[in-house]
Amino acid sequence: MNVLGIETSCDETAAAVVDDGLVRSNIISSQHVHSKYGGVVPELASRAHMRLIVEVVEEALVQAGTSKQELDGIAVTQGPGLVGALLVGLNFGKAMAYGLKIPFIGVNHMEGHLYSNFLSEEKPSYPFLSLIVSGGHTMLVHVTSNSRHRMLGQTRDDAAGEAFDKVAKMLGLGYPGGPIIDKLAINGDPEVITFPRSYLEEGTFDFSFSGIKTSVLYYLKRQGILDSEMNKTSIDGQHLANICAGFQLAVVDVLVAKTMAAAAKTQVKDVTLAGGVSANSLLRNRMREEAEKHQYRLFYPRLEYCMDNAAMIAYVGWMKLREGMKSDFELHAVANLSLQSHPG
């Protein structure tokens, strides 16, 4: 079964072909237009998606060596994301499926991330625990079988990746903040400047990352690195590296501790990481150490499957289409579509 996946929830225009669960092509076109604004600008995102989508879809078909007529279904991200951006992919996918007279299915972007570890040869086994961590999301999900999952906790304020982006912006480092902080932190000592870890109340699997952002802000003000107008003054390179390292460790410590606690509680054997922040080298290393200590098998996606991509959307679409599920053409894009729980 040949499924075309389309993903336009944020700033990547992506298309992929998955054939019986195997990735045949995975095209991602990033919108560099955003870097100078320090974030995703919604209207720019929609326009860039419109400009890019035809060629991205065509490239995905060419690389997969398949024609439109050989497709058996089309899967498109329905949400969560920027509505204007989602609509571009959703309407494109609907029109294409309607024209080809093949089924169309809307896919939850977060469910895509849950299955991003199934795109590689070595796959996790059910039940497993997944930490999805990105610029827009931070959640722990217990997955018991195909499309059966239960959300254990999520952020109550900012996503972990958002904290990286905002701290990077305070430090004048550019966007996206994660990779830049990761790189600078390598030369820093995380013990020199320590920031508070927010574990919230005992037993919860929820997260909170807005407090650490504020702590970094106060630190920068106390040190005179930010003036009263929030403008950055000068900063010594080693000091900058130490701030990045201290901040990064504070975020990673919480992510690792909560994931391990949730894995113990759900008694899984496999733990997966997903989402853009799962590319962070400290997170991978610390999680690997802890997983080994507690004898969990740890999976994280290849880099191109950490970031937003359409292969994971096509994969989930394929799982559902082969079970006879499909969406009707009335399906709406939903900005804050939740990952509905399907316990079992």
């Binding site: 944020c10 974030g39 995703v40 919604p42 969560p80 994301g81 920027l82 509505v83 610029g135 827009g136 999301h137 999520q154 952020t155 109550r156 304020d157 900012d158 996503a159 958002e162 807005s210 900005a335 804050n336």
Partner: peptide
């Protein structure tokens, strides 16, 4: 939660 990423939550 913070709508920074989704821009608008309804």
């Amino acid at each position: 939660t913070s709508p920074t990423f989704t821009f608008v939550n309804e």
